[in-house]
């Protein structure tokens, strides 16, 4: 069955204090309420983040995981990376260099993605068993 759920990339604001975090959470609330949400937070703009910002990220992650979705972070600015490391939350998120990488990661290892991959033929010689029955369709006829 083909599932093409959308991946939503959301750019986070420059400052993530209590007020901004609340506004941001209100903006993304409809996304969190969808079934199996797939979200990427682009953190490239973040210059300042405090405990409320980290708390908001954890809240988003909890909500998304409740709905069997995934939240990934992309383009994390050095300032944001420092705060995430400081608060030990960096290890909870998958972090990607760019939003594109993060979006692509949602489609990795899916059966549908693998379907169109070229079939690799092994270069080593493989000896196959010879079917001796010539009457069977596909069987190898014996030399006279």
């Amino acid at each position: 069955m083909e599932t093409s759920r959308p991946v939503v990339v959301k750019r986070m604001p420059e400052r993530l204090n209590q007020k901004q975090a609340r506004t941001f959470l209100r903006e993304i609330q409809p996304l969190l309420n969808t079934d199996r949400p797939q979200l990427v937070f682009d953190c490239s703009l973040i210059r300042q983040m405090d405990a409320a910002g980290v708390d908001m990220l954890l809240h988003c992650m909890a909500e998304i995981m409740k709905r069997d979705g995934e939240l990934k972070l992309a383009s994390v600015s050095p300032q944001a990376a420092v705060v995430l490391e400081l608060t030990r939350t960096d290890r909870l998120f998958e972090v990607f260099e760019t939003s594109g990488d993060a979006v692509r990661s949602f489609y990795r290892f899916l059966p549908n993605a693998m379907k169109n991959q070229p079939v690799l033929v092994p270069k080593v010689a493989v000896s196959l068993p010879i079917d001796d029955d010539p009457d069977r369709p596909g069987g190898t006829p014996m030399a006279a």
């Binding site: 959308p6 991946v7 939503v8 990339v9 750019r11 939003s99």
Partner: peptide
């Protein structure tokens, strides 16, 4: 949603 929202969607089998 605000204009800074970007949606990347998978189409068909890519």
């Amino acid at each position: 949603f605000p204009s800074q929202l970007m949606i990347a969607r998978r189409y068909g089998n890519e």
